[in-house]
Amino acid sequence: DESNKPILLPNESQSFERSVQLLDQIPSYDTHKIAVLYVGEGQSNSELAILSNEHGSYRYTEFLTGLGRLIELKDCQPDKVYLGGLDVCGEDGQFTYCWHDDIMQAVFHIATLMPTKDVDKHRCDKKRHLGNDFVSIVYNDSGEDFKLGTIKGQFNFVHVIVTPLDYECNLVSLQCRKDMEGLVDTSVAKIVSDRNLPFVARQMALHANMASQVHHSRSNPTDIYPSKWIARLRHIKRLRQRICEEAAYSNPSLPLVHPPSHSKAPAQTPAEPTPGYEVGQRKRLISSVEDFTE
Rank of each mutant, 00 (worst) to 15 (best):
215 H>V: 14
235 H>C: 14
22 L>F: 11
19 S>K: 06
269 T>L: 11
54 E>Q: 05
46 S>I: 02
118 D>S: 13
294 E>C: 13
131 G>C: 15
140 N>V: 00
55 H>W: 15
129 H>Y: 14
109 H>F: 03
166 D>A: 04
164 P>L: 00
249 Y>N: 08
270 P>Q: 11
252 P>G: 08
211 A>C: 05
233 L>T: 14
204 M>C: 05
24 D>I: 01
122 H>W: 07
109 H>R: 03
83 L>S: 15
92 D>F: 08
141 D>G: 01
56 G>R: 02
45 N>V: 03
163 T>Q: 14
117 K>C: 12
137 I>H: 00
100 H>D: 14
85 G>K: 06
23 L>D: 10
49 A>P: 02
208 A>S: 05
293 T>R: 06
102 D>T: 08
123 R>S: 10
233 L>F: 07
155 F>I: 04
269 T>D: 10
143 G>H: 06
215 H>Q: 09
61 T>Y: 11
25 Q>I: 04
243 I>R: 06
36 V>R: 00
248 A>K: 09
158 V>F: 10
11 N>Q: 11
146 F>K: 00
162 V>W: 00
37 L>S: 01
283 K>G: 11
58 Y>M: 09
140 N>I: 00
99 W>P: 03
74 K>V: 10
86 L>V: 13
107 V>H: 14
234 R>A: 11
102 D>E: 15
261 S>Y: 09
115 P>G: 04
95 F>K: 06
42 G>P: 01
251 N>V: 13
240 R>G: 14
186 T>C: 11
198 P>T: 02
44 S>F: 03
226 P>K: 07
284 R>H: 14
185 D>E: 05
96 T>I: 10
38 Y>S: 00
159 H>D: 15
24 D>W: 03
55 H>R: 04
145 D>R: 04
172 V>A: 00
154 Q>L: 14
227 S>E: 08
174 L>M: 12
158 V>L: 02
77 Q>E: 06
84 G>A: 12
113 L>W: 03
63 F>T: 00
188 V>F: 10
2 E>D: 11
180 M>S: 01
292 F>Q: 15
54 E>W: 03
230 I>N: 12
164 P>C: 01
136 S>C: 11
112 T>I: 00
55 H>F: 15
97 Y>C: 07
118 D>C: 12
109 H>E: 07
154 Q>G: 15
9 L>F: 11
129 H>T: 12
58 Y>A: 10
238 R>S: 15
105 Q>T: 12
216 H>A: 07
280 G>K: 07
179 D>N: 09
30 D>K: 03
38 Y>F: 03
84 G>N: 15
268 Q>Y: 09
273 P>C: 09
200 V>N: 01
170 N>I: 00
119 V>Y: 12
229 W>L: 06
80 K>F: 05
273 P>H: 10
159 H>L: 10
162 V>G: 00
152 K>Q: 15
1 D>L: 13
201 A>K: 00
165 L>K: 02
267 A>V: 07
58 Y>N: 05
92 D>T: 09
65 T>K: 09
25 Q>E: 15
147 K>V: 09
48 L>Y: 13
43 Q>D: 02
145 D>E: 11
46 S>A: 05
285 L>P: 14
90 G>T: 09
280 G>F: 05
80 K>G: 09
151 I>F: 08
280 G>Q: 09
133 D>W: 02
63 F>L: 02
220 N>G: 05
31 T>Y: 11
145 D>C: 04
47 E>W: 03
284 R>K: 14
259 P>R: 12
131 G>Q: 15
5 K>F: 15
200 V>F: 06
218 R>H: 09
176 C>M: 03
274 T>L: 09
136 S>M: 09
243 I>K: 05
180 M>I: 14
